[in-house]
Design a binder for these strands. Structure first.
Lengths: 209, 209
DNA sequence: ATCTGTGAAGCACTTCACAGCG
DNA sequence: CGCTGTGAAGTGCTTCACAGAT
């Protein structure tokens, strides 16, 4: 069956709320309560879950632990994912130092840069390699995800190289509207883009509250 | 007229592509070409723009400079936006040091933390204030946007305080599914969330390309 | 001839509302 | 009686297709 992409985007939110409930030692939760916590309607949660199976018990709700487990399996969060970082400037270093990846099973296992001055540097236990070596390094040691943290001017060409190396999921921090072929997944992780759409609403609703 | 939210989310992409075209000294662009650059259909671009006016010339296309100007005005990007950062740990410092905000008219003008050890510190020209002072500091010196970079456990309460202080746009870096009242805009800027939905597709399409 | 602007058609997602299980 | 799972209805967004302007 073909699952609507928006549904897939909501599942990680559900896992997040379920983790919180689990650490509160809650055993059961209803779509109603989950919905209130997340700002999503209960009907939507039930419909979303129904694409994958029947996880609830009528009259009771969902077993927190079991549902969390199912969702993690569905999303592929029950294993480790290997990532390559391209660009170890200011932003790239911050990404390398980010502690939120590892506990969720995401690990940066290779780092690249185009600047020869940075090649060879040791950062967080990784030796920075030249971006010219991308192809050989990734074929010797493949990754699942590419993280792009290079200047806008070279971002598209870096993305093209990653795609050529078989990377099918890319996290793009560069401020460009990058193109990828069908079948490659790209997510823009870029604060300015998010800000620029919020300003529209700020501008159009003056006064407090 | 009520503009579909998805349309507003696309406008910043259009401004980005138009800026690129402008720096290439292109005078005119068609919806066809803009669409190819962005991976959006030409019809969608024309429809989106038609919500706001008639900016094109039949048989020719759109004047790059004029359209960019119009979109920036529509989105409110023709002025400065003031932001407050809450949380100056590792992540918060990286955000303070990010150079992508200023050229786009976004400026962090206040920084807060709950940890007394960090209060008083000088960072990027700002003196870190105690989170207890949020209310008084923001009423003396209001901001348009709040940036939340605190641990998950206290993120919701920080967000509540920001909302109480009249902040109506929030960029949330904390890994929680935060709640905000209607009328407040919140964007999740969180790499793990983006990764966790991409893994679904990776898991479900084995083999190269 | 080319490319916009736009009603109308088509598609995708959300919500409703209720049968049925615990 | 509460709450899930789900067809059907409703809503919102996208694409089509063409009249009209240059």
């Amino acid at each position: 069956m073909e699952i609507p992409p928006v549904v897939i985007d909501r599942l990680p939110l559900y896992t997040r709320a379920l983790s919180a409930l689990e650490s509160e030692a809650r055993e059961v939760v209803s779509s109603q309560e989950l919905g209130t916590r997340l700002g999503v309607t209960p009907a939507q949660i039930r419909k979303d879950l129904s694409y994958f199976g029947r996880f609830g018990k009528q009259g009771r709700g969902y077993n927190v632990h079991k549902l969390l487990d199912e969702l993690q399996r569905i999303l592929g969060l029950d294993r480790q994912w290997r990532m390559a970082l391209v660009g170890v400037g200011k932003l790239g270093r911050a990404i390398l130092g980010y502690e939120g990846f590892t506990p969720q099973g995401f690990r940066i296992v290779q780092a690249f840069d185009t600047d020869p001055k940075r090649v060879g540097e040791q950062l967080n236990g990784l030796t920075v390699k030249s971006a010219d070596e991308l192809e050989s390094a990734l074929s010797a040691n493949p990754v699942d995800v590419g993280i792009v943290a290079v200047p806008a001017e070279i971002a598209q060409s870096v993305i093209n190289t990653l795609v050529k190396c078989g990377v099918r999921a890319i996290l793009n921090y560069a401020p460009i509207a990058a193109q990828v072929p069908r079948g490659v997944h790209l997510k823009r992780i870029e604060p300015v883009l998010a800000l620029q759409s919020m300003t529209y609403y700020l501008k159009n609703s003056r006064g407090p509250a």
